[in-house]
Simulated scan of single mutants.
Amino acid sequence: MVNLLNDIENYWSNRAEGYSEVNRGELSTIQKDKWLNEIERRLEGIPKESINILDIGCGPGFFSIILARAGYKVTAVDYTEAMIEKAKENAGELSSKITFIRMDAQNLLFDDEIFDVVVSRNLTWNLEKPDIAYKEWVRVLKKQGILLNFDANWYHHLFDDEKKREYENDRKMVASSNLEDHYTCTDIEAMEEIARKVPLSKIMRPAWDISVLSQLGVTEVNADCDVWKNLWSEEEKFNYASTPMFLVQAIK
């Protein structure tokens, strides 16, 4: 499994510049406001100045930046050093207000119950041990802390014929609409090789997430399978029509 973790790190190191460009695009458009509003409406009633947020798998820093701009105390972790460097670069002057640390999402080097909120986006599916990751995320949450995990059934089409047809139809629709194909902007072969090895590519979610978190003793867990409708750009909706993003929310 160590080799797989290295493969994942190498892949995202190579993607750092391209992924950072995507994040910068989001930060320059209304997308940043949509995402911040979605997160903040789930934190209503908690004084902002008292909220300590952990952004897991921060990538080039999108969540960390919008949350720090809004006045939250943010700690951001990612296993890929190149992503941390891009996040600092994108944060600019804000980087001094965000604590960036290279760390494995499946082995958090924090004490128990120190964060009020844990946020993550498009990470869980790409982990070797997502159940262990969830255990760690719940561990570092304070009592009544909130976990917000945005993800999708990325690459499930590699294991499901119907999903494969839907995925191929997405590619045709993107081409006919003269939009940028987000998949061709990646090293598809390398990503698919990793996706075949990680466990969640084979599993339809978020039922799995709800089951795992329930077993970890959270007081409340639910999924919003329509969250993508409010958050994705039109281009994203075309690109990922067959893999709609969901939100798993849990309260410790």
Rank of each mutant, 00 (worst) to 15 (best):
M1W: 02
L4H: 12
L5G: 00
L5I: 01
E9I: 15
N14E: 14
R15T: 05
G18S: 12
Y19A: 09
V22P: 00
N23K: 00
R24C: 01
S28M: 05
T29M: 06
I30E: 15
I30T: 15
D33R: 09
W35P: 08
I39L: 14
E40I: 08
R41V: 01
K48A: 11
E49R: 13
I56H: 03
I66T: 12
G71Q: 07
G71I: 07
Y72K: 05
A76F: 06
V77I: 15
D78C: 04
D78E: 08
T80V: 15
A82P: 05
A82G: 04
M83I: 01
E85T: 09
K86W: 14
S96L: 02
S96A: 06
S96F: 03
K97W: 01
T99M: 09
T99Q: 14
F100W: 10
R102H: 00
R102V: 10
A105R: 01
Q106A: 12
Q106R: 09
L109Y: 05
F110V: 11
D111F: 13
V117T: 05
V118G: 10
S120F: 04
N122C: 08
L123C: 10
K129G: 00
P130M: 12
D131M: 07
K135C: 04
W137P: 00
L141A: 03
L141S: 01
L147S: 00
L148Y: 09
N149K: 01
F150N: 05
F150S: 09
N153V: 04
W154L: 13
H156C: 01
F159R: 02
D160I: 07
R165I: 12
E166N: 02
E166R: 01
E168Y: 06
E168M: 13
D170T: 08
R171S: 14
V174T: 09
V174W: 07
A175K: 15
S176Y: 11
S177K: 07
N178R: 10
N178P: 00
E180A: 07
H182D: 10
Y183I: 02
T184I: 11
T184E: 09
C185A: 13
C185G: 04
C185I: 07
T186V: 13
T186Y: 15
T186N: 13
I188L: 11
I188V: 14
E192Y: 10
E192F: 13
E193H: 11
E193S: 14
E193N: 15
P199N: 11
P199H: 12
S201T: 15
R205S: 09
P206Y: 12
A207V: 10
I210V: 15
V212H: 04
V212I: 13
S214D: 02
L216P: 05
L216A: 05
G217D: 11
E220Q: 10
V221H: 05
N222I: 06
N222V: 07
N222G: 11
C225S: 08
C225F: 10
C225T: 15
V227H: 06
V227E: 03
K229Y: 14
N230F: 11
E234F: 06
K237G: 12
F238I: 05
Y240T: 06
A241Y: 03
M245R: 00
Q249Y: 07
Q249I: 02
I251D: 04
